[in-house]
Measured scan of single mutants.
Amino acid sequence: DVEPGKFYKGVVTRIEKYGASINLNEQVRGLLRPRDMISLRLENLNVGDEIIVQAIDVRPEKREIDFKYIP
């Protein structure tokens, strides 16, 4: 289970102007929005990149997770 405040290694699977889709595994994925990137710009991400993200909002009833990137 993903817990708010914990850090996870994820893989960038899609990049859109509203954010990047991050997969932690086949069943768990979430969104990294541009506003939640401290020192990383969306255009510097590539599909397949592995990054460390922090879960900031977990809504299991909607199967949604928001991530934050902290270098």
Score class of each variant (00 low, 15 high):
P71K: 08
N23Y: 14
P60C: 09
R63A: 12
N23H: 13
P71F: 07
G10P: 00
R14Y: 07
Q54W: 11
L32M: 05
Q27Y: 14
E16D: 15
K68G: 14
L42K: 03
S39N: 14
Q54N: 01
K6E: 06
K17T: 12
K62D: 10
D49F: 06
R41A: 11
Q54H: 04
P71G: 13
I38D: 10
E3I: 15
K68Q: 10
K6R: 13
Q54C: 12
V11Y: 12
E3W: 09
V58R: 04
A20N: 01
I70N: 09
I56W: 08
V53A: 01
Y18M: 11
D57M: 14
T13R: 04
G48H: 02
R41M: 11
N25D: 09
D36A: 06
L31M: 13
I65V: 10
R59I: 05
I15Q: 01
I15S: 01
P4D: 05
D36Q: 05
N46Q: 14
K62M: 13
I51Q: 00
L40A: 07
M37V: 05
V11K: 09
L24D: 00
P60V: 12
G48I: 01
R59W: 07
M37L: 06
E61P: 06
E16I: 06
I65N: 02
V12W: 04
K9C: 15
N44K: 06
A20L: 08
G10R: 00
G30Q: 02
F67S: 00
L45N: 00
I51M: 03
D57V: 13
E43R: 09
S39K: 12
D57A: 15
E64T: 10
E26P: 14
M37R: 01
D49T: 05
N23K: 15
V47C: 05
L42Y: 06
E64H: 10
I65W: 11
Y8F: 04
G48E: 02
I15W: 03
N44E: 15
E3L: 13
R63L: 12
N25A: 08
K17W: 15
G10S: 02
L32W: 03
S39L: 12
E50D: 08
N46D: 07
L31N: 06
S39H: 14
K6T: 06
S21Q: 15
K9S: 06
V58N: 07
F7G: 01
V58W: 09
T13S: 10
K17H: 12
I51C: 01
K62N: 10
P71S: 11
V11F: 09
I65H: 04
V28G: 04
I15L: 07
I38Y: 10
I70E: 09
K9M: 10
I52V: 12
E50L: 13
R63T: 08
R29K: 12
L45D: 00
G5P: 04
K9L: 12
A20F: 08
V2G: 04
E50N: 08
G19P: 01
T13V: 11
L42E: 02
I52P: 00
P60M: 10
E16Y: 15
G30Y: 04
I70D: 13
I65E: 02
D66F: 15
Y69L: 06
N25C: 10
V11N: 03
N44Q: 14
V47N: 02
Q54F: 13
P71M: 10
V53W: 02
G19C: 09
R59F: 06
G30R: 02
A55F: 07
G30F: 09
V28F: 10
Y18N: 11
D1L: 14
L24F: 05
V47L: 10
L32R: 01
L24T: 02
L42P: 03
L45C: 04
I65L: 07
E3D: 06
N25Y: 08
V28Q: 08
E26V: 10
E3T: 13
R29L: 09
N44F: 10
V28L: 13
V58H: 05
E61K: 09
V2A: 03
N46E: 12
E16R: 13
R29A: 14
P34Q: 13
R33T: 03
L24N: 01
P60A: 11
G19Y: 12
E43L: 07
K17D: 11
G48K: 00
I65C: 07
L24Y: 02
M37I: 07
D57G: 15
G10F: 09
D66H: 12
E61I: 07
P4N: 10
I51L: 09
G48C: 05
V58M: 06
P34V: 11
A55I: 14
E43M: 08
N25H: 07
N25S: 14
N44I: 05
R41N: 10
V11A: 01
M37Q: 03
I15V: 10
Q27K: 13
V53C: 06
S39F: 14
D49H: 03
A55G: 01
P34E: 11
R59C: 07
R63Y: 12
P4T: 12
I22R: 01
N23T: 15
A20M: 05
I22T: 01
R63M: 13
V47E: 06
E16A: 13
I52S: 04
S39T: 10
V58A: 05
N25K: 05
R14P: 00
R63H: 13
D1S: 14
F7Q: 03
R63G: 15
R35M: 08
K9E: 02
N46C: 14
L40H: 06
L32S: 01
K68H: 05
Y69W: 08
R33W: 04
D36I: 06
Y69A: 03
D57C: 13
G10D: 00
R59S: 07
Y69N: 04
L45I: 09
I70C: 10
I22Q: 01
D36F: 08
K68S: 11
Y18Q: 10
A20G: 02
L31A: 02
I22S: 02
S39Q: 14
E3V: 15
I15C: 06
D1T: 14
Y69D: 03
K68I: 08
F67K: 03
P34M: 08
L40I: 11
E50M: 14
Q54P: 00
V58T: 07
N44P: 02
F67T: 02
V2F: 10
V58L: 06
P34L: 10
A20D: 02
E64N: 06
K68L: 09
I56H: 05
I15H: 01
I70Y: 11
G30D: 02
L32Y: 02
L24V: 10
I38E: 10
L32G: 01
G48S: 02
F7S: 06
E16T: 15
K6A: 07
D49M: 13
R33V: 04
A55Q: 03
D49P: 00
G5W: 07
D57W: 11
I56P: 01
L42Q: 02
E43V: 08
V47K: 02
V2Y: 09
R41H: 10
N44W: 14
N44H: 14
A20H: 03
A20E: 01
R41D: 08
E50T: 14
G5R: 04
P34S: 10
I38K: 09
D36N: 15
E3Y: 12
I56Q: 05
D1V: 14
F67D: 02
I56F: 10
F67R: 03
E43H: 10
R33Y: 04
R35T: 09
E50P: 09
Y18H: 14
K17M: 11
P71L: 07
L24H: 01
F67G: 01
D36Y: 09
G48F: 02
V11T: 11
L42C: 07
Q54E: 05
E64F: 11
P4M: 13
I56Y: 12
K9N: 05
V28A: 05
E61L: 09
G5T: 03
D49A: 06
P60N: 10
V28N: 05
I52D: 02
